[in-house]
Amino acid sequence: MQVFDIFLLEAVVNGILLGGILALLALGLNLVFGVIDVVWICYAELIMLGMYAVYYGHNVFGWPLWLALVFGVAVVAVLGALLHQFVIRPVLAAEPINQLLVTGGVLFFLQAVATLAFGIEFKNIGIRLPQLSVGEMYLSVARLIAFLVALAGMIGMYLFLTRSYLGTAIRAISQDRAIMPLMGVNPNRIFLITSALGGGLAGLAACLLVLQYDIHPAIGLTFGPITFMVCVMGGLGNMIGGFIAAFIFAQFISVGGFFLHIEWGYVIAFVFFIGMMFWRPQGILGSK
């Protein structure tokens, strides 16, 4: 019985750490979602390209890891801005569902471009962080780092949004886009900055994922859906809600996976999500 408990505890702790990654994944998507009111269905594919960017920087160009990581963040930030300028902007006035679908088209496109450019072989940067043993538990150092970075990202984002003019404008624009020019704000510029920021956060997530997972063109499909679920359950654009939702999902996956199998963990999480949508469509923190 003692052994059983320690493994369960390990699953719970690993779930908390996984929650950190999910929270970080959700952060950028939530920002874009909350401000521009557009779902980037291709969000996880941006992360995938960020992972390739880190791989190319480190393993092909031979840069030091830190530079490759910075490169990864920068590449995805630029991609985010480009995505907005060339894909989202032309459909901003179109029906919401077209905005959703157009980024779905980008998803196919980015996956195919990655296949074309990088091939279908699995790649990894050849760095594996050790397991940390705490008592009788084994915890992933990579996940621990991701957890801490997610926490720092959350706090940084909160301070940016509440303490700076730009951050205040980003919060304001989602409430009344039409009068922003009267404040001397160019809405498109705010959208571009937000998209670049959202991309940058996706790049940050890419940096942490690349330490744990092999890279291949379809990797986005494995964590894209769960990221959407986290955002929606947290309440679209509600970052604190997203943070909490990330940890709830992570526990389902980790503990569910511990008792059954990892796929069942995901199944339980998704079924829970569907149920939650009926019970609280506005998100866990939303009010009716």
Partner: peptide, 12 residues
């Protein structure tokens, strides 16, 4: 946004 944040937007 709070009253003060609204005023802050005026001084953007």
């Amino acid at each position: 946004l709070s009253v003060e944040d609204n005023l802050r937007m005026g001084a953007y």
